[in-house]
């Protein structure tokens, strides 16, 4: 499970998170919604360990362990996964090579044996097929020239292969048409389990029709201002953020 307690963070002296507290038990999906500029993506970067931000107070516990002191690759090896809003292009590295390198790097950090090439290819092919990712795409450089939908499917493929304990999806629905949204959502849903939790960051209720959350949280000015059940998302879609933000101020 992921527990964020009283998290404060800033960048270049500008306060972005102001005492954010949120708990997502294992097996649950929590959705964070909120207006532009409320700090949603920043939250995902800070939890994953991006060094541009300075955490000034609070803690982030992954399965009971405070991960804020760990470098990002060790957070990943302990089971944290961030699906990027804008997956990064890496020219010169084939998708296939990147996937194998990532899987083996995490295994090595955890003190496990590296995967044999034949085993890796078998696992990768099976997972790629489910997400309609072609072998040809896996031979291309990572994310280079991929469409928005292809990039997001590839994020889900990585999450599938890396088998995290906790996944953060940062606006995974942005840039997707309805068909791609369905494929990506089905990919995420197939990973839901009793042991695994998710934090889904989104602007729109639409994604939550496909990935049904257990709880919905509204974020504004760097903290959670309202929490509720799935109905809260419908309410937001109908009335917008303004009233909730105003009443929290």
């Amino acid at each position: 499970m992921l527990e964020i307690k009283n998290l404060h963070a800033e960048i270049d002296g500008k306060q972005i998170l102001n005492g954010l507290t949120l708990s997502v038990p294992a097996g649950e999906v929590a959705a964070i919604m909120g207006p532009n500029g409320s700090g949603k993506s920043t939250l995902s970067y800070i939890v994953a360990g991006r060094s541009d931000y300075t955490v000034t107070a609070g803690e982030v516990l992954l399965n009971g362990e405070n991960i804020l002191e760990l470098p990002p690759h060790e957070r990943a090896a302990r089971g944290l996964f961030l699906a990027f809003q804008y997956p990064v292009e890496i020219p010169g590295v084939t998708t296939h090579t990147f996937l194998r390198t990532a899987m083996n790097a995490q295994r090595k950090t955890r003190g496990e044996e590296e995967l044999k090439t034949a085993d890796f290819i078998k696992i990768m092919r099976a997972a790629a097929d489910k997400l309609s990712i072609s072998q040809e795409m896996l031979r291309r450089p990572l994310n280079v020239g991929f469409s928005g939908g292809e990039k997001k499917r590839l994020e889900v493929l990585q999450m599938t292969l890396l088998e995290p304990r906790f996944g953060i999806l940062d606006e995974t629905d942005s840039g997707l048409d309805i068909d791609a949204l369905r494929v990506v959502s089905e990919g995420v849903n197939s990973l839901r389990s009793k042991e695994r939790g998710f934090l889904v960051i989104t602007h729109y209720q639409r994604l939550l029709d496909y990935i049904k959350p257990d709880s919905v949280h509204v974020m504004s000015q760097g903290r959670i201002i309202k929490s509720g059940g799935p109905d809260l998302a419908l309410e937001l879609e109908k009335h917008g953020y303004r009233d909730i933000v105003a009443s929290a101020a």
């Binding site: 470098p71 990002p72 090896a77 990532a102 790097a105 950090t109 890396l162």
Partner: peptide
């Protein structure tokens, strides 16, 4: 950062 976040050490 993308590579780190996937588990690659620096």
């Amino acid at each position: 950062f993308y590579a780190y976040s996937r588990g690659l050490p620096p």
